[in-house]
Amino acid sequence: MTHLPRFTRSLLHPRYWLTWFGIAALYLVVLLPYPVIYRIGCGLGFLAKRILKRRVKIAHRNLELCFPEMSEAERQRHVDGNFRSVGMGVMETGMAWFWPDWRMKRWCDVSGVNEIRALQAEKRGILLIGLHFLTLELGARIFGIHTPGIGVYRPNDNPVIDWLQTWGRTRSNKSMLDRKDLKGMIRALKNGEIIWYAPDHDYGPRNSVFAPLFAVEQAATTPGTWMLAKTTKASIVPFVPRRKPDGKGYELIILPPENNPPLGSPEETAAWMNKIVEKCIMMAPEQYMWLHRRFKTRPEGAPSLY
């Protein structure tokens, strides 16, 4: 059972004052009109690209590995756009945590909700596939406004951020589960709940099988999708929260449910899941989180890709 963080007086200790200052600044910024927020976010991304040199190299390398046919000029355009999304991701986190529902609905279009409600009417559990887009926080908030579910998360090392992100994410969703709480996930899915689940990160050699992802033949991929789908018979529903161009708002695209995934082995399911991951990423490639070392874990004896 996951115990969610609660607000206590210890969070007001002077050691956290700088964190609270940053939170207050973000809160004030997201009170501004959205077109202004958009310009600030893009500007912040421009600055981040000049400061986070190591992350720029990782983004370049990931794009090179996934799309070897891409020209250097095109790759550079993707990285530039990706860092604009990094800056906007900070703004969108504040929007997700602090905006009222009416303001979220004003700037966000949603498609595919009826399919979710039909599955809920059948009392079927839903494994909601939410990738690590930079719009991640905003997407979870938008989805929860229409069909609340349960999020899966990694507790933050900073207790103030841990409390705030939990508070923000449960504004329009039911609860949160630690990503290690597999029993909690299984229980919720068997009870017909929606579980937000991200299968697109590298979770290390102990928690991975290897499957193709774009041009990388052996990408470390979680076997969790196989285990959860096989155990609970949940419907698998991918969704993409996508920022519209030029500060025109957002669209949340819920893809058709996958009710009969291949479950012959963890590797088979991982390869199938990675095809869905590819499809989702290509719906908003510059908004994906290319900054982490997605291909850090390698098969035994294989050289590092970074």
Rank of each mutant, 00 (worst) to 15 (best):
L31P: 02
G43V: 11
P35M: 12
V29H: 05
E64H: 12
V30P: 01
P35R: 10
V56M: 06
K49A: 13
I40F: 01
Y38R: 00
G45Q: 10
K53P: 02
V36G: 04
F46E: 07
R55N: 14
R39D: 01
I40N: 05
G41A: 06
P35Y: 13
V29F: 07
V29L: 13
R55Y: 05
V29G: 01
Y34Q: 09
H60I: 07
R50T: 01
K49V: 04
K49Q: 14
R61I: 03
K49W: 02
R39F: 06
K49F: 05
L47F: 12
V36E: 07
G45V: 09
V30Q: 03
K53N: 00
L63D: 10
H60L: 00
R54W: 06
E64L: 09
V29D: 02
V30K: 03
F46P: 00
G45W: 07
A59V: 09
A48F: 13
L31A: 12
L63S: 12
E64A: 11
A59W: 02
N62H: 09
R54F: 06
A59L: 10
N62R: 13
G41C: 00
K57I: 07
I40D: 01
P35H: 11
R39I: 04
H60E: 11
L63H: 06
A48Q: 06
E64S: 08
G43A: 11
L32E: 07
L31K: 13
L52K: 13
A48P: 00
L44H: 02
F46A: 12
I58V: 15
V30L: 08
R55I: 01
V30W: 04
I40V: 13
K57V: 11
P35K: 06
R61M: 03
E64T: 12
G45E: 11
R39E: 07
I51T: 13
L32W: 04
L31D: 04
Y34E: 10
E64M: 07
L47N: 07
I40P: 07
L47M: 14
R50H: 15
P35Q: 13
A48M: 11
L47E: 05
I40H: 00
I51C: 09
I51S: 07
I40Y: 03
C42E: 15
N62P: 10
E64D: 08
V30H: 07
V36F: 12
I40R: 02
Y34F: 15
V36S: 02
V30S: 06
F46S: 11
G45F: 08
I37T: 02
A48C: 14
R61T: 03
K49G: 02
P35G: 11
H60N: 11
I37E: 14
V36D: 04
V56C: 13
E64P: 01
Y34L: 08
C42R: 15
P33K: 03
R61L: 07
C42M: 12
I58A: 06
K57D: 15
G45H: 06
I51Y: 11
A48L: 13
G41N: 03
K57Y: 08
G43D: 11
L44W: 13
G41D: 03
K53H: 11
I58T: 15
L63N: 09
I37M: 15
L63G: 06
G43S: 13
F46Y: 10
Y38V: 05
L47S: 08
H60D: 09
I58P: 06
R61A: 05
K57C: 10
L47A: 14
L52M: 15
P33E: 04
E64F: 12
K57R: 15
E64Q: 13
Y38N: 14
H60C: 00
G43Y: 04
I37H: 00
C42T: 14
G45A: 08
